[in-house]
C-alpha cells in the first residue's frame, strides 16, 4: 500500500460519544511513525470509499437503522472486509456489524453480518458506566472504557469475544465484544483507542502488515493507569 487510508464511517449518523476520536488516534499514531496516511470523514450522503481501516461509532436508534440500511445497500464495507480491511466498531456500530439488533420498537433489524453476533434488548437496567475488559487479543492486555447501551449481545461459534469483563456489563454474559478475522466490535464506546493505545497499534499493525516502532505514550499510559485504578483500585496498576 502506498498510503494507509482510514475512514470514519458515517460520522453524521454514528458518532454520539466522541467516537470520531478513534479515527483521529489511528491517523496520528500512523503519522507519528512516518507512515503516509489519510483520514476520511465518510459522511452518509456520499458513497463509502474502499479503504484499509474503518471505524464505526455509536448512534441513537433511528440513525443506527438508517446507517445499517445504507451500508447494506452499498455493500462496500462487506466487500472491503472480504479483501482484508480492518474494522473497529464500537457501541451501536458493533451491533450494526453483527448479524441482528433491535430497532427502537424492538423489531429485529438485520445487521451486516461481519461478526457472528446477535443483539437483543436488555431486560434489566441500561448498562451505563466504566467498563474494564481483559483482552484476549495478543499484546493488548487490560482495556478501559465507558459503556452506555440498551442491548446485550450473544456470540455465535464463528466469533470470539474481545475479552473477559472485569468491571461492567459488556455483552452481558461476562464477556465483551467480538472478533472475527480483522473485524473487532466492542461496547467500550467513544474514544476507546485514546485510553488503550495498545489496541490502536494492533489495528494499525494489521492494516499496514508491519511491526510498529514504539511512541512516547506517557500521556496515554497515565490515562490508562488512572482509569484502571479508578475502576479496580490499586490492583489495576499491577495488571495494567
Amino acid at each position: 500500500m502506498t498510503v494507509l487510508r482510514i475512514a470514519v464511517v458515517y460520522p453524521d449518523l454514528l458518532g454520539t460519544y466522541g467516537d470520531g476520536g478513534n479515527g483521529l488516534v489511528l491517523f496520528r499514531r500512523a503519522e507519528r511513525r512516518g507512515i503516509a496516511v489519510e483520514l476520511i470523514q465518510a459522511t452518509s450522503d456520499a458513497a463509502l470509499p474502499a479503504v484499509d481501516l474503518y471505524t464505526l461509532g455509536g448512534g441513537e436508534d433511528g440513525p443506527q437503522v438508517l446507517a445499517t440500511e445504507r451500508l447494506g445497500e452499498a455493500g462496500t464495507l462487506a466487500e472491503a472486509v472480504a479483501n482484508g480491511a480492518v474494522v473497529l466498531a464500537v457501541c451501536a456500530g458493533y451491533q450494526i456489524v453483527g448479524a441482528r439488533f433491535p430497532a427502537a420498537d424492538g423489531a429485529p433489524v438485520d445487521g451486516l453480518g461481519l461478526l457472528d453476533a446477535i443483539t437483543e434488548k436488555s431486560q434489566g437496567r441500561r448498562p451505563v458506566g466504566e467498563i474494564v475488559v481483559e483482552s484476549e487479543l495478543e499484546g493488548v492486555g487490560m482495556l478501559t472504557g465507558f459503556e452506555n447501551h440498551g442491548g446485550l449481545t450473544t456470540l455465535g461459534p464463528s466469533a470470539s469475544p474481545l475479552g473477559r469483563v472485569c468491571i461492567g456489563i459488556g455483552n452481558g454474559d461476562g464477556t465483551d465484544g467480538a472478533c472475527s478475522g480483522r473485524v473487532v466490535g466492542t461496547y467500550l464506546h467513544g474514544p476507546v483507542l485514546a485510553r488503550n493505545p495498545a489496541l490502536a497499534d494492533l489495528l494499525l499493525s494489521w492494516a499496514t502488515g508491519r511491526a510498529l516502532a514504539p511512541l512516547d505514550d506517557h500521556r496515554e499510559l497515565d490515562l490508562h493507569r488512572e482509569r484502571l485504578e479508578a475502576s479496580l483500585g490499586r490492583r489495576g496498576r499491577r495488571r495494567g
Partner: peptide, 15 residues
C-alpha cells in the same frame, strides 16, 4: 448540527 443528521420525525436524513 452533529445531533440533527437523522430526522427526528421519520428517521431519514436531514439536509
Amino acid at each position: 448540527r452533529a445531533d440533527a443528521g437523522g430526522c427526528p420525525a421519520c428517521g431519514g436524513r436531514i439536509r
